[in-house]
């Protein structure tokens, strides 16, 4: 536990100190929401009562969590490159504690970003929510981010080059994001696309957040949460496994 907390503390300290990362990470989701949301919304009109921007908002939140989480795996690559990984590996703490600390640290960072985005969305009047929905939202965001941080850690354990990591992650992130029903509902998709979307863990994350924030959903909330919990657990296990086998 001591180890987990210490690793988490460092990740969080580094994140809070790095203001440019925090501000920069807000850009993309806001552009999506503002430009794409308004633009596409003007074409398809007011379909589901709340407008397209409102439909898209949980999807953009999911994007924020996905990007923020997966790229915290980049810290692992940098730790390897700048040698700090060695300091952690010779410490009298288990490898599992390091991975768990990293996962929680990355999740904290991603969730902080998401909460700020949520506040902005609220301020713009796109979404309305209360304390209850926020209380429901936090655990869902936690499951999403822990899962995807571990996906990032898993890849980072195998890769040594930060640029390579970013390239490969883009290959992974973009389809995950587009398939996640962030932009379109699941119902009317052609079967092949629907199948792919159903295989994307982020679909259930976006669906859960949409059901909490907007009240629309493809699945009952408990199904979403169950799938997310399964995904996160699996990701932690795989991440820890690959991290243990890591070569410096």
């Amino acid at each position: 536990m001591r180890g987990v907390y210490t690793i988490w503390l460092r990740e969080t300290l580094r994140f809070v100190r790095n203001k440019s990362r925090l501000v920069g990470s807000m850009g993309m989701p806001l552009f999506f929401l503002l430009f794409m949301g308004t633009g596409i919304g003007s074409v398809i009109g007011d379909s589901a009562g709340g407008g397209y921007t409102q439909f898209m908002a949980p999807g953009v939140l999911g994007m924020m969590l996905l990007f923020g989480s997966v790229f915290s795996g980049l810290n692992v690559v940098f730790d390897k490159q700048f040698g700090f990984m060695k300091e952690m590996l010779v410490a009298p703490i288990s490898r599992e504690a390091i991975v768990l600390g990293k996962a929680l640290g990355g999740a904290t960072a991603a969730m902080l970003q998401a909460v700020i985005l949520l506040a902005l969305v609220y301020a713009f009047g796109v979404l309305e929510f209360n304390v209850v929905s926020l209380a429901l939202l936090i655990p869902v965001m936690f499951l999403i981010s822990v899962g995807f941080v571990c996906v990032g850690v898993a890849f980072a354990s195998k890769l040594d080059d930060p640029h390579g990591f970013q390239l490969i992650m883009n290959f992974l992130i973009m389809p995950l994001f587009f398939l996640s029903t962030a932009f379109f509902p699941l119902d009317n998709l052609p079967p092949w696309l629907k199948t792919l979307s159903l295989l994307d863990p982020l679909t259930y994350g976006v669906d859960a957040m949409r059901s909490i924030l907007v009240g629309q959903a493809a699945f009952p909330l408990w199904v979403d949460v169950a799938v997310l919990a399964g995904f996160s657990t699996l990701a932690v296990l795989v991440g820890a496994r690959l991290f243990k086998d890591m070569k410096l």
Binding site: R2, G3, T6, R10, E87, A91
Partner: peptide, 21 residues
């Protein structure tokens, strides 16, 4: 090779180590 966290201060690097151990 170097193995410090350069984004942290001298104290923070030692503090991290002290907590780990």
């Amino acid at each position: 090779g170097q193995s410090l966290d350069t984004e942290l201060t001298a104290y923070e690097n030692l503090d991290f180590h002290a907590r780990l151990y």
